[in-house]
């Protein structure tokens, strides 16, 4: 991590609200999902946002990627306010910020082969031979065999799908990857593979990650700083070990306890 360098991403006073739901919604008026959230991410840093379902974690991610316009607040990425960019500026931005979502299957087009999915990211390379070489190198870096190129998403395991998602995110050589619960639907051995991959890419490419999760024990392994989120606000933020070892907020203590099921009393 580059401690003295300027932040890659700077979010200030972010507020995100949704209009009330459909005809069956019991909620009247706009729902404030994120209230006055500020944070920054440095090059090479992993910043984790941890909280329970519905706390607003994914809303922040959607806003940073440029999918969800905030009500108020600013998001500066590489010194540019992303919500003041025109369409082409936003397109350039998206090659530098890539998402990896929780549901690895739903984020892959079921009618495209793995090769087609990845090669879309290489559309700038005209030479077919060069494109195939780049593609195979990329697959190898995430531990996938070239044989996988012919397969469709339904023919891949959960871990292979998630590695394909990571490969697609890496294809454009981004500066920041937003990992929205990338491990929570994965098995133990797949989690170990993915954590290994993410850590090695972080070092190799000086990547920054925003890691969204509800599980502190996983977050602890790869993040430098943690923000604890509840009902749309950050209630605690700090260095990972400081938060885990000396939580100042009761909710953080509950989260730490819940992430460790060994505390379930038996007998």
């Amino acid at each position: 991590m580059q401690f003295n360098s300027p932040p890659l991403l700077e979010v200030k006073d972010l507020c995100i609200s949704y209009r009330k739901g459909g005809i069956s919604s019991s909620i009247k008026g706009p729902v404030c999902a994120v209230k006055g959230v500020s944070f920054s991410v440095k090059p090479g840093e992993t910043y984790a946002i941890v909280g329970e379902s519905g706390s607003g974690k994914t809303s922040i991610a959607m806003s940073v990627i440029g999918f969800l316009r905030p009500l108020t607040g600013t998001i500066f990425f590489m010194n540019k306010n992303i919500w003041e960019l025109d369409r082409s500026g936003l397109r350039r931005l998206r090659s530098n910020i890539q998402p990896v979502f929780q549901n690895s299957g739903a984020s892959l087009n079921p009618r495209m082969s793995a090769g087609k999915i990845i090669s879309e990211a290489f559309h700038a390379i005209v030479d077919e031979h060069e494109k195939e070489k780049a593609l195979i190198d990329l697959l190898r870096s995430v531990g996938l065999d070239r044989e996988i190129l012919r397969r469709f998403p339904h023919e891949l395991s959960g871990g292979q799908k998630q590695r394909l998602n990571i490969a697609r995110a890496l294809a454009l050589k981004p500066r920041l990857i937003i990992l929205d619960e990338p491990l929570s639907s994965q098995d133990l051995s797949t989690r170990a593979q993915l954590i290994h991959l993410l850590s090695s890419f972080k070092k190799a490419y000086l990547l920054s990650y925003i890691l969204i999760s509800h599980n502190l024990s996983l977050v602890r392994l790869i993040s430098d700083r943690i923000a604890i989120m509840k009902q749309g606000v950050f209630i605690e933020e700090g260095a990972t070990e400081q938060i885990i070892n000396n939580p100042s907020n009761n909710y953080t203590k509950v989260l730490i306890e819940a992430s460790n099921i060994k505390n379930v009393k038996t007998g």
């Binding site: 395991s157 051995s189 989690r191 593979q193 290994h196 850590s199 392994l221």
Partner: peptide, 20 residues
């Protein structure tokens, strides 16, 4: 792997994939 997660260590991944 389970023990590595509990002890905040990088787990050593199993080689290969679950067979189809």
């Amino acid at each position: 792997i389970y023990q590595a997660f509990r002890e905040n260590r990088q787990p050593t991944p199993l080689p290969g994939e679950i067979p189809s």
